[in-house]
Amino acid sequence: MAKLKKKLNGLRRSPKSLIAVLFAGLLVVGSGYTAVNAAVSPDRQTVRSESQIQYGKKLFLANCASCHGRNAEGRELIAPSLIGVGEAAVDFQVSTGRMPGAASGPQLQVKPVQFTEEQISAMAAYVGSLADGPAIPDQAYLQANGDPTKGGELFRINCAMCHNAAGKGGALTEGKYAPGLMGSSAKTIYEAMITGPQNMPVFNDANITPEEKNDIITYLTYLQENSSVGGDDLGGLGPVTEGLLAWFGMLGLIIAITVWLGAKSN
């Protein structure tokens, strides 16, 4: 008995068992997490036809492989692997004109869109066929028919620190920035949240549910469609442009009027 106990004690102390315990723990937590995640995000894979995937692969080899590698495995220091980024990422990147990327400063820039919708979905289908990832969002969540109040609250809590409370954009460190959202479509907004492009974090369905994403889209759509009730919004940049207008528009105008009147009376 004592012998067994000793043996067990020895086992407990050995580094091998430590690894085993850690591994078991990770397995439990990891599979639990996946299960939970799967539960909140039901697979919305669209059906992909083989010919579409082939067409997508052709396009990919011609336009993207130079950076992302022939099998989308990524090339070190040039571009990341696209295995598992999902159809949503491709759709977001290509339909906003970010991809194909062009070497530039600290952040890849938005450029004119280079592909038709059909080509984009083909490339998305190809990348999606490599491994599962965030799918193109369901139309049901892109109707901007949610609750704008809730959307506004979620936006202020989750997004305003980078994109500004009115969605006008803002600066990040080292020349990076969060763009203004006044021209983003519902689909772009949704896909940005689920794929987290560049320096934007991912907001998966456990963070913000699809319904809540629709609320955020509803709020942003309201801001896009309704111009400021108070007159021109001066770029929505707040007190800085207001101050400039006060100095140059108001005080400048008043001084110009007095100088003009003075010149007239003399």
Partner: peptide, 25 residues
């Protein structure tokens, strides 16, 4: 010209902070 569009900012809540927060000139 709009000044201080408070409706855009929402009521005060200590958790969010907006990018581009500036005071009057």
């Amino acid at each position: 010209f709009t000044i201080n569009p408070i409706w855009n900012y929402g009521g005060y809540d200590p958790s969010p902070v907006s990018a581009g927060t500036q005071p009057d000139w």
